[in-house]
Simulated assay, not measured.
Amino acid sequence: MMSIDKTLKLIRPNIARLQPYSSARSEFTGSNAILLDANENPYSFIDEEMEINRYPDPMQRYAKRKIALLKGMEPNQIFLGNGSDEAVDLIIRCFCEPSTDSIAIFSPTYGMYSVCAAINNVAVKQFLLNDDFSININQFFDNISSDIKVVFICSPNNPTGNAQPIKTIERVVSQFNGILVVDEAYIDFCPEKSTLNLLNKYPNLIVLQTFSKAWAMAGARIGIAFAHENIIRILNKVKFPYNIGVPSLKVLERALEKTSSTKISVNQIIDEREMLKMKLQALPCVEKVYPSDTNFLLVKTTDANSIYRYLLNKTIVVRNRSNEPLCENCLRITVGKPDENQRLIEILKAYEP
């Protein structure tokens, strides 16, 4: 098990030495001030109530306090980013030396881990999931190398839909001498499978969540990273000063007052998911619908390329995942509204190879 001191030694030396951009706004914590520090336009003529003429709080203090209460964490354990993708990129930048270090992923999985690594000139080591999309833990530890600094586990996984057992994740984080990132973008659909309660035990663990899925805020682009306060301090040091805009923060504040609405929506989606799964399984063009802990289904079909094009021609857009490992002839289908799901089924019933 890694200590926080050992974990912090994984940070790239130039990042550890970095002096972050500092604004007077981040140094002031009061209210009702006369703001003459940031060269803003003092006149709010577009939306006076939203005050978009002013820069947002660079540390998003109010939102973090609300999220901390909701998740049972401390505000200093929370990083807010422009979507979870910002956190993915920052983690790789902070811990992986370009042209030297690597990340590890379990394929098939979310594609942005590899994209962010490529942008940062960091290699990607792929470990294939088992046929049931579980992690082959022995294969991982038998083949891990010292250049791997960050491991990403997407749980529940995209595109397969399944969550990894917490005991598997804990075995990785307890034995791996690097940073483990658990991406829980879909965890609100199976909250009992979250790894948040491991954070205080393992300082080398970072848990990602998002407001894009269950919270119906994909357009606001707000992701969360939970971690040891010293890791959060590093992420805040590297991020752009005002990385989340005022409109997004205002929407987030309103959403955090409506947690009951989110729970109702999640339950509706889960019910609709099970109904959609049952109807899909009865179709001749469907060979298998995989179990899901998310708001989507991975569906093995008789001919994914043909069915994908057929659905596009009928103005239905799904995701063709046939080129992903273990996903031959598979489509990923998001659970829509009841009428949208019914229309999908009707269209697929009329499909002819």
Rank of each mutant, 00 (worst) to 15 (best):
C327P: 08
D101P: 10
P20A: 12
N82E: 08
V124E: 11
P98Q: 11
Q60E: 12
D183N: 15
L36Y: 04
I206D: 08
E40M: 09
P284T: 00
A33G: 02
Y55P: 02
T160N: 05
I307A: 15
E40S: 08
G245W: 02
L249N: 08
Y242I: 00
E340G: 03
K125Q: 07
C285I: 09
D147R: 03
I222T: 01
Q60T: 08
N323Q: 09
R54H: 07
S22F: 15
N243G: 01
E229K: 07
N267T: 10
Y43A: 01
N204R: 11
K149M: 10
S194L: 04
D188H: 14
A104V: 03
A220L: 06
Y290I: 08
N295G: 08
V289P: 03
P338E: 00
S212L: 06
L36A: 05
I91M: 14
K6D: 13
I316F: 01
I91V: 14
I270T: 07
I206T: 06
L297W: 01
R17Q: 11
V182D: 10
G83M: 10
I67E: 11
E352M: 15
L90Q: 03
S31W: 13
K9N: 11
S261A: 13
V251C: 10
V88A: 10
A185R: 15
E48Y: 10
T334W: 00
P325K: 00
P325F: 00
F141Q: 08
V266M: 13
E51W: 09
I179S: 06
G178L: 14
P108I: 00
L276I: 13
I137H: 02
V88I: 14
P20D: 13
P353R: 00
P75D: 11
I34V: 05
L256V: 08
K237G: 12
L235R: 01
D131G: 02
I91H: 12
I52Y: 12
I153W: 15
I224W: 05
E272G: 00
P58A: 05
V286G: 09
G81S: 11
E74P: 00
K300H: 11
K213Q: 07
M1R: 12
V286R: 06
A38L: 13
A218E: 00
H228P: 01
E192T: 14
Y21K: 12
Q164Y: 13
R273C: 10
N323D: 07
E253Q: 09
N177S: 01
E86H: 12
A282M: 12
F95S: 03
E51T: 10
V317L: 03
I103R: 01
I4A: 05
